[in-house]
Structures are given as structure tokens and as C-alpha cells.
Design a protein around this nucleic acid. Structure first.
Lengths: 369, 369
DNA sequence: TTGAAAGCGATACCAG
DNA sequence: CTGGTATCGCTTTCAA
């Protein structure tokens, strides 16, 4: 331990002090610290010792001011407390750190912003990040599909990008920005996942499938619902039509699933399977069904979307469309830091996976009531 | 819409430009922007219009450099993907924003750092945040109780605090720092929660209670286990002793619960209840039990610690010690931003709540095998 | 109430 | 390879 930092009302050590201590110029210290510059071995050593002895920690704001870019990466999520975003943000944050965990002092920091999926918050945070001269921004989660917002968002994103800030859209549709701007997109095959999930349920004999979708107006809700309906339509237009009555738009919280299910039941609808917007919603659905004495999955089979493997083998839902959130987070981190180049069209599509745990056919009594 | 921002390879608008556009000095613009300074009404209006017209966004790094403090708040968590930390971080982040959601451009940003609970990462991130001249730092989650690390951590925290950065320890033991330093602590009544949980199980007749604890050496694991054991001890020293054999230290992931349970069963232990380090672990426990054909909660009752209410009424565990994470997050945000003063001793203790969903007595066959 | 000017701490260009 | 030094954009005395 060489630690010799002095306590007190201490004002931080500056690069100049390190330079003086090492008997070199500030410029040289900067070079040693930033690497990638020819510096004599002896000089380098002296500087490093000085840094060590003084406990020098570079002033990031100053560096950002001079370099016109910080090592902050903004991550916009609807809500980190939601496992979907928690997993995504966690993977992203982890992949942002130094490749070599060795030398600390490096590494980019993740600025997590909860937008609740609202346009206003989204724009506000983008402004804040623009002010921080963020080194990158990742927008995650379904986008509100509303022209006014899309235009405003496109403007802000283009502005960030043209100022040199790489932007990555993750789990939301691409934005139309001028060519050459560093805007990449990572999307999940939500449509395909929902399609295969519906196919699976149909194959098991389910015909009346309830669907507790995410909020209307959200890109992900639309994509998934479209995939779901496409599968039903392809199977039998009549079934598709019938199922439209069984579709409810709700939120992403547990209560959304609970309330939606109660509403469906109160309305007197009968169904042998329910698809949930995500597994959190699924837990609410399960609770509501249990409360009514409906057995799961004997009476009703529950399925969901997410990346919560435990729901697959612990309790219903027994079928889950797994969205590769970790992979996406890592990919987004690489794209936003330039460690990886986006494909020519800027769009990377990640496949979703249908995870099935046992076949739960609908009860005989449930068929076509 | 007055928006008239020009696109291109644009270099951002500066305060000086706004000043020129408004026909005032930079100093005046700064005053208008930062408020709390006497500025003539007319002048203020002109400046505000100039800001609007030019689409000016202040350069945060420059501001931080000049002001010697940024509006970034570091939040260290073990893993945001873990609901415990996700909920905590989410609430914290939300409470950090402007009180009046009106004017954007304000608001402090949360820098979320995953430490995996490792000392090295913890120290590394603190250094990074020190470099950012963070406006505050919140350390969450159990602390590794190891003198060497505690000393290193105390040093870094004291250093941050003495440099004017408020530090809040949340869900971990207080640190001994020199008086007058802005270091506050928010703790959960882990001991009490575990105590009451054990009492509850004992009251139901359970005598052989397995305990899948968190990692050994972690403050939270110790506190909870201590509370648990204290209750058993108080009830009957013999029972306490017996239960020690049924205690396993594991991680906080689902697999930890799964593996631990399999190990217990393989070892031939019999028990009528299991307490999990958290609800995620509980799901793993449940999975392992189910796999062995053990019925829950008829054969074995599962209980956990967390703030995942859905586990309480959807599936086992049927009993949960609810840790007030949201409240803690908000409180930490207020303390770190100075919107709230810590009590004289700097320590705030938040009560935990025992949430019970039905009484699950141990099966007659299970009593004292 | 407003303006002028001196930093804040690091980067990077230009010499040497 | 190393040393000056002019920025970077904003805050903050100090005067006026």
C-alpha cells in the first residue's frame, strides 16, 4: 500500500500537481494517462508513481469539456424495476465496463433514466443527456406510436447523433434519420414470437385464447398482437375474429393482469388459455384465476413474454416467449461504444425463443363451449 | 412551436451565443438560467426567448467544472437485474428528478453501477464517481464484512464526503467516518424481520426449519440469520441447534435456491419449512421441491424476504418479510440531494413487514420425524 | 441590476 | 519524445 492521501477539507489533486511532483509537463502526464502516445519508459514510470503517491483521480468534467465528450452512456428504460428493463439495463451496464477489469479509472458509466414509457419524459431525458454530452445513448422498450412524438423524437435523436453521440434503439422500431448518422437499431422478433406462441396453443387444441396485451399505442404491443392475430387468422379466420373479443389492452404491472382477467371473467367470457404481455402480468392473471377457483393449467393455460426463466418451470405460465434481453443489452453496449459495427442497414434482429414446459391441452369441457 | 434548431454537423449552441442573441452579457444569461439572482424582468424575458429560439442546452461538463460538482448521483447496487435492487434503484432514480416535473433541463441523473457485491468493483466505481465529481453517492445492498475492505471503503467514502459529496449507505451497516461528514445511513430491520418470521413459523408448529441464507460474509445475511436464530433460541435452544444443520449459505439467484435445496434433500435432511434469502431464491427452492414430488405448502412451507408482493398471493412462498425498498429508495434520494436532513446519529431504520397469506401448519407426518 | 474577466482542470496542437 | 499554451463553456467575484 502506497496510499498517502491527505484528509481534511482537501481539494482534489490536479494533473498539474502530478506533473510538478513528477518533474514533467502537464502535457506529458496527460499522455501517460491517456496512453497511445510515445512516452519514454523512465518518464512514464515517474509519472505513474506520482499518480500513485498523490492518489490522483482525473477530473471527468474537465476532461469531458476539453474532449467534447464524456464517458457517460444514457440508458432510457420504461422502468428499471420491471425485470424486462432490469435485465436489459444490467447486461448493458456490465458490458460497458472496461474489457480488461484490470485497470480501473477507465470504464464508461451508465446513466439510467426511467421514462415510464411517456413521450415527455423521454424527450426530457434526451435533453439532459445532450447536456451531459453523453458518449452514447440507448433507448429501450416499446415506443409510443404517435406521429407528433415520433417526429419530436426523431429530431432529438438526429440532433444527438449529428453532434457525434452514437444512439442505439433497442426493442423499438428504427427511426428515419439522415444517412450516415450513428443510429443503430436492435429489435426483437416480437411478431414471430407471438406467432409461434399462438401456433403452439392452437396445436394443443386451444381455440378461445384470451390476450392481455400491453398498452395500446406501443410498438411492442402492436407487433406482438399482430403476430398473434396473424397466426390465428392463418389457422382459421373465424377463430381469429372470436379472439378479438378476448383481447384486452392493459399495463405491464401485475395489477394489469389481475384487473384485465377479472374484467374478462365478469364479462362472462370463456377461454382455455391466456397470453400475457409479460410474466409479471401473468402472475396477476394467475392470481385472478385462482381467486375464482379456476385451476391452472388444468382449466386455463397461461403463457407470457419475457426473460424470466423461472416462470417457466416454477409455476404458470408454462409457456414463455423468451426475449433475449441479456444478449440485446450486451449488443447495445457494443454498438454504442463502437466496439462493434452495425450491419449496413443498421438493424439487427434478435430471434425470440419459444420455451415450452409440458403440453397443456385445453380441458375437453373447454372446447368450443 | 418555436423550434428553429439548425441541423448539420452542428456544434452546440453556447451560452455566449445566447448572450449575444439576447444582447446581454454571458454572466447575465448564467444568472437567468441558474435563478436565485436578481435580474430585471425584461432582461430575463429576452434571455429566455433567446434560449428558446436557439434551442440552447447547457453544457453540463463545463458547468460541473466551474461549479466543482455535477448533478450526477452514483448508485451502487449488486445487480439491477435483481428485483431487490431494481426496485430500490428505480424508486431512487424517480425521486431524483425535479420536484416540479414542469421545467426540464433540471433534474439529477442516476449513474447505476453493478458491483456484484464485490469489494473490488465497489471501490473501482467509487473512484470513477469521485472522478465525475458526483453530486452524491448511494451505496446499497449488504456489505462484505471483511476488515480490509471495510477499511478501504471507509477511506474512500470519507474522501468523497470530505470533498463535499453526500454519501448514503442504504441497506448496509453504518461506517465510522470523522464527525461532520455528510454520510447518512438507512437500514432495514432485517434482524427483526427474520425474528418475526421465525416466530411465525414456530407458532404454526414448524420445528425443523431449513434456511437458505445469502452469501456468508455479507452483512444482510448475517443480520437476518441472527434474527432467525435468536427467535429459535428464545423458543427452544434445542430447536435452534437442530436448525443450524439446516442452514445453507448460497447466492441470491434462483439457482442458488435450487441447488441448496437439492443438497439438503440429498443429505437426507427433513424439514417442514424453508426460509429463503429472497423470493428469487424461493422460486428455485420451490422448483427443486416440486421436482422431488414434494407438495407445497402441504408438505413444506416456503417463506422469503423481499419486496415482491406477487410471490405472496400467487404461489409460494406464502409468507414474506417485506423489505420497504421503494421507501428506502426515495429516502436515500432525499438524503443524498439534501432535500431531507438525516437524524442526529445519521441512522434511519425502516421497519420490515411480515406478510402472511394463510397459515400453513406443518403436516402432522412432518412433526419431529 | 449588469458587465468584465479570472479561473476550473484537462486536451491537443505547435514547436523544439 | 517533451514542453508551452490556447482553448473548452460556464460560474463567480469584483466593479461599475
Amino acid at each position: 500500500m502506497t496510499g498517502d492521501e491527505k484528509e481534511g477539507t482537501s481539494m482534489a489533486v490536479t494533473l498539474a500537481e502530478v506533473a510538478a511532483h513528477a518533474g514533467v509537463s502537464p502535457a506529458t502526464v496527460s499522455r501517460v494517462l491517456n496512453g497511445g502516445y510515445p512516452v519514454a519508459g523512465g518518464t512514464r514510470t515517474r509519472v505513474e508513481r506520482a499518480v500513485e503517491e498523490l492518489g490522483y483521480v482525473a477530473n471527468a468534467p474537465a476532461r469531458a469539456l476539453a474532449a467534447a465528450t464524456s464517458d457517460l452512456v444514457g440508458v432510457l428504460v420504461h422502468d428499471v424495476a420491471d425485470s424486462y428493463f432490469g435485465i436489459l439495463a444490467g447486461a448493458l451496464q456490465g458490458a460497458l465496463g472496461p474489457e480488461t477489469p484490470a485497470r480501473s479509472g477507465s470504464g464508461r458509466l451508465a446513466v439510467v433514466c426511467n421514462t415510464q414509457g411517456t413521450p415527455a419524459a423521454e424527450l426530457a431525458y434526451l435533453t439532459l443527456l445532450e447536456g451531459q454530452r453523453a458518449g452514447g445513448v440507448v433507448l429501450t422498450g416499446g415506443a409510443v406510436e404517435e406521429v407528433e412524438h415520433t417526429v419530436a423524437l426523431t429530431t432529438r435523436v438526429a440532433r444527438l447523433a449529428s453532434a457525434g453521440t452514437p444512439v442505439v434503439l433497442c426493442g423499438r422500431p428504427p427511426l428515419t434519420v439522415p444517412d450516415g448518422l450513428p443510429v443503430a437499431t436492435v429489435v426483437f422478433d416480437d411478431h414471430g414470437g407471438a406467432f409461434r406462441l399462438a401456433e403452439h396453443l392452437l396445436a394443443l387444441g386451444h381455440r378461445r385464447i384470451a390476450y392481455v396485451a400491453g398498452p395500446a399505442g406501443l410498438s411492442t404491443s402492436r407487433e406482438r398482437l399482430a403476430g398473434h392475430r396473424a397466426a390465428l387468422e392463418r389457422f382459421d379466420p373465424a377463430v381469429a375474429e372470436e379472439c378479438d373479443t378476448l383481447t384486452v389492452h392493459a399495463g405491464f404491472e401485475r395489477s394489469a393482469g389481475y384487473d384485465a382477467t377479472r374484467a374478462l371473467l365478469r364479462r362472462g367470457e370463456s377461454f382455455t388459455a391466456v397470453v400475457a404481455a409479460n410474466d409479471t402480468v401473468a402472475t396477476g392473471i394467475v392470481a385472478a384465476l385462482r381467486e375464482q377457483g379456476i385451476r391452472i393449467p388444468e382449466d386455463v393455460s397461461v403463457a407470457g413474454f419475457d426473460d424470466l426463466p423461472f416462470c417457466v418451470d416454477t409455476a404458470p405460465p408454462l409457456t414463455t416467449v423468451r426475449v433475449p434481453l441479456r444478449e440485446a443489452g450486451i449488443l447495445a453496449a457494443q454498438l454504442v461504444t463502437g466496439r462493434r459495427q452495425p450491419p449496413p442497414d443498421g438493424i439487427t434482429t434478435l430471434a425470440t425463443e419459444l420455451m415450452v414446459r409440458g403440453s397443456t391441452a385445453p380441458p375437453a369441457a373447454g372446447r368450443q363451449p
